[in-house]
Design a protein around this nucleic acid. Structure first.
Lengths: 140, 140
DNA sequence: CTGCATGCAAAATCTTTGCACATCG
DNA sequence: CGATGTGCAAAGATTTTGCATGCAG
């Protein structure tokens, strides 16, 4: 099943209409490998669907989040970033405080210890966010 | 050296004036063991310094952050939370997505693996944020 | 057709800033 | 005193919402 079909099914299951606007937004969103802000997504969607409105982008992002297709993140600049969960493996982030570059990484051992730590405290993890802030090696 | 004296020194070193407003804000901020939003801090400071303004609270929080005395966090509700770094050990957070309760925890092993993961990628960690989202055991 | 979705603009937050006045050092 | 800080209100920035109209199912 293609990603597009998968999204279609997820929408239908939830009784959501598959409008041209949503198709355009999802097409751009799934294609992007970066963490997009709502505005970045809006700007890109506008190129293939010029009459799109901010509200529709925000509302669609909320839907994607609500149905587990997207994840919202804050890297400290006041605006939310969104990432697709459909075509990406889980990963965490290294954020350079000097140049602002965001690098992805994953570490199974850390993930497992997180699970243990949560279990020991009677807590069931549904998701997590790990962000390491510092300085990357390409920055002087 | 008391915390108050420490803050005083840190301010003097940075050439900052120790005004009554800043004293009031810092007094409340250090005393709180919770993650305060700017508004919560403002409301509390207002009780001991009624003429305080939002702007001063925000500006002081920015100073505290800049001089390493406070840390800003986002738990996903759109408003920033601030935590003192002076009287608290580093810790991470378990956030219940059902009741919203925030529980603190620490795990040395995870911290060390974070350091290793970052080093392996040529990255120097200055700080980090780990948030586990899920469901706590007191929630049905 | 009928109800959900959209686009626009206005509203709602949260946060920052300009400016005249106050105050710390 | 002189430079910094404060309070107010206004401006900014991001996100949400009300409402008339459009369109998917």
């Amino acid at each position: 099943m293609t990603r597009k079909q998968l999204v279609g099914n997820l929408f239908r299951v939830n009784g959501l209409k598959i409008t041209r606007q949503r198709q355009a937004i999802i097409q751009i969103f799934l294609k992007s490998r970066k963490h997009l802000s709502a505005d970045e997504l809006y700007q890109r969607v506008r190129r293939i669907y010029p009459s799109i409105g901010y509200a529709t982008v925000y509302r669609t992002l909320r839907l994607l989040k609500g149905s587990g297709m997207a994840e919202e993140r804050q890297f400290g600049d006041g605006k939310a970033r969104f990432e697709s969960l459909l075509n990406r493996k889980h990963h965490d982030h290294l954020i350079c405080m000097k140049c602002g570059r965001v690098q992805e990484f994953e570490d199974d051992e850390i993930e497992q210890l997180q699970g243990t730590a949560a279990r020991n405290r009677g807590f069931k993890i549904l998701s997590h966010k790990l962000e390491l802030y510092g300085q990357c090696n390409t920055c002087p």
